[in-house]
């Protein structure tokens, strides 16, 4: 397995009809680090994330995840491979017909041979680690606040001990205090799993949280990577677009 990168893009191009969404991207996402993909709306961030998970096929180029060329995998291999990922969606995307507990237990029931007691222990452990009480565990997603839904989403994403955790605008719609609580939780989760090369990839608009919590920043504009730097170097960037973002 590549020691340096968990995810590598080699000449990645994605076109929808005439418009080019991702334009010849070649870079890697560091293994064991928190990388945030930053950029304005329409920069291609979400399309990039979909390529990492194999949800869309590149028009040209390759996406290599954990040393596997993901765009060359067949349908069934790809589904198997996706168990390496955990994902927290913009609005959590919890299954609304299941309680918080059942949501976190869902991947364990689908993909493991664990018995109910083992599932209970693991789910309650995960929920406790994200600050969800036993009472809240019995609630449906519609009975939880936005912040709590994100926490349950994080616990569900971690259920199968993924190698890569993806966050799509994880704090969108949250107040500033809850935003930082969620970011703290993401960082703590990362640190707890860091020893096994756990990689966190965050899609965000939030420059302040990004600077505080990330190890690396990929700045995208119009389907291209403008900068890919560690946080300290990023802060000193002279690129006018990045300066504009930093001075917000």
């Amino acid at each position: 397995m590549s020691e340096k990168y968990s995810v590598e893009f080699k000449g990645l191009v994605k076109k929808f009809g005439e418009s080019t969404i991702l334009d010849n991207l070649t870079f890697g996402i560091h293994r064991g680090k928190i990388t945030t993909v930053l950029g304005f709306s329409g920069a291609g961030k979400t399309t990039l994330m979909k390529h990492i998970m194999g949800l869309v096929q590149p028009t040209e180029g390759d996406v290599i995840v954990l040393d596997t060329v993901i765009n060359k995998l067949g349908e069934l291999e790809l589904r198997e491979f996706r168990r390496n990922f955990g994902m927290v969606f913009q609005y959590a995307a919890l299954f609304d017909f299941l309680t918080s507990y059942e949501n976190v237990a869902f991947p364990l029931r689908e993909f493991t041979d664990m018995n109910e007691q083992e599932i209970y222990d693991k789910v309650m452990g995960l929920l406790a680690s994200v600050g969800i009480s036993e009472v809240a565990a019995k609630r449906l997603p519609s009975e939880l606040s936005g912040g709590m839904r994100k926490r349950v989403g994080l616990a569900r994403g971690l259920a199968l001990d993924p190698h890569i955790m993806l966050y799509d605008e994880p704090t969108s719609g949250l107040d500033p205090i809850t935003t930082h609580t969620v970011y703290d939780l993401m960082r703590d989760t990362h640190r707890r799993n860091e020893h096994r090369g756990f990689t966190s990839i965050i899609i965000s608009h939030d420059i302040h949280a990004t600077l505080k919590y990330s190890d690396y920043i990929v700045f995208m504009e119009k389907g291209r990577v403008v900068e890919h730097l560690d946080v300290e170097t990023f802060k000193k960037s002279e690129n006018p677009v990045i300066r504009q973002f930093l001075e917000l």
Partner: peptide, 18 residues
Amino acid sequence: GSMKVTEQIDALEVMGIN
């Protein structure tokens, strides 16, 4: 339909469930 617009179907796919 409501699962689709709230990304619950994407969540299934990301987990590797068709």
